[in-house]
Simulated assay, not measured.
Amino acid sequence: MATISLIDLMKSYGDIPAVKGVNLDVADGELIVLVGPSGCGKSTLLRMVAGLETVTSGSIEIGGRNVVKAEPAERDIAMVFQNYALYPHMTVRGNLEYGLKNRGTPREEINRRVREAADILEIGALLDRKPRQLSGGQRQRVAMGRAIVREPAAFLFDEPLSNLDAKLRVQMRVEIRKLQRRLKTTSLYVTHDQLEAMTLADRLVVMNSGLVEQIGTPTEVYDRPATLFVAGFIGSPPMNLIPVSSLSGNEVSAGLPSGTDIVGIRPDAFVLEQPAEPSLALEASVELLEPIGGESHLHVRLNSSGQSIVLSVPGRPEIAEVSDIVVHARLADLHPFSAQTGRRADNP
Rank of each mutant, 00 (worst) to 15 (best):
Arg107Thr: 04
His297Arg: 15
Val221His: 01
Ala117Val: 05
Asp128Ala: 14
Ile7Asn: 13
Pro278Ser: 14
Glu108Arg: 13
Pro275Asn: 15
Pro160Asp: 04
Gln138Ile: 07
Ala50Ile: 06
Ala284Asp: 11
Ser209Val: 01
Gly259Cys: 08
Val55Lys: 07
Ala143Thr: 08
Val313Thr: 08
Met144Asp: 07
Ile123His: 12
Lys20Tyr: 03
Glu213Gly: 10
His299Gly: 02
Ile292Asp: 05
Tyr84Trp: 12
Glu122Asp: 12
Leu289Tyr: 03
Leu272Gly: 14
Met172Tyr: 14
Gln140Arg: 09
Arg65Asn: 12
Ile16Leu: 15
Val322Asp: 15
Asn66Gly: 08
Ala147Glu: 11
Asp76Gly: 09
Leu179Gly: 12
Gly64Met: 05
Ser253Glu: 11
Ala125Lys: 15
Leu241Asp: 10
Val19Ser: 09
Gly232Phe: 01
Glu213Ala: 14
Ser38Gln: 12
Arg181Thr: 05
Asn303Ala: 13
Val49Leu: 02
Gly210Ser: 07
Thr191Ser: 10
Met79Gln: 02
Ile148Asp: 11
Thr54Ile: 00
Ser305Thr: 13
Pro72Arg: 12
Gln133Ile: 00
Leu331Glu: 06
His335Trp: 08
Ser187Val: 02
Ala345Ser: 13
Pro152Tyr: 05
Gly64Trp: 09
Asn95Arg: 10
Val326Ser: 15
Asn163Tyr: 04
Leu24His: 09
Asn66Gln: 13
Arg113Tyr: 06
Glu109Gly: 00
Leu247Ser: 07
Leu334Asn: 01
Gly99Met: 04
Lys178Tyr: 01
Thr91Cys: 14
Val310Arg: 11
Ala254Trp: 02
Gly315Asp: 05
Asp158Asn: 09
Glu109Asn: 04
Asp8Cys: 08
Leu46Phe: 11
Asn102Arg: 15
Tyr222Val: 09
Ser304Glu: 07
His328Ile: 04
Gln340Phe: 02
Asn102Met: 15
Glu151Pro: 03
Leu195Trp: 00
Tyr189Asn: 12
Leu302Trp: 09
Glu287Gln: 14
Arg107Gly: 04
Leu311Val: 08
Val170Phe: 03
Leu188Lys: 04
His335Val: 08
Asp119Leu: 03
Val80His: 03
Ala345Gly: 09
Leu156Gln: 14
Leu45Gln: 03
Leu126Ile: 09
Gly63Val: 02
Leu272Val: 05
Asp15Gly: 01
Gln274Met: 12
Ser245Asn: 14
Glu159Asn: 06
Arg344Pro: 06
Ile4Tyr: 12
Gly264His: 06
Gly294His: 11
Gly293Cys: 08
Ser305Ile: 10
Gln180Thr: 01
Leu96Asp: 13
Gly294Tyr: 04
Ala332Gln: 11
Lys101Asp: 04
Tyr189Ser: 06
Glu151Met: 13
Asn208Gly: 02
Leu288Phe: 14
Ser248Phe: 00
Val142Lys: 10
Pro88His: 10
Ala27Tyr: 03
Ser162Gln: 10
Pro317Asn: 06
Ile7Cys: 05
Phe157Ile: 05
Ser304Leu: 00
Lys69Val: 04
Leu126Ala: 13
Ile110Gln: 02
Val92Pro: 01
Tyr189His: 12
Ala269Arg: 10
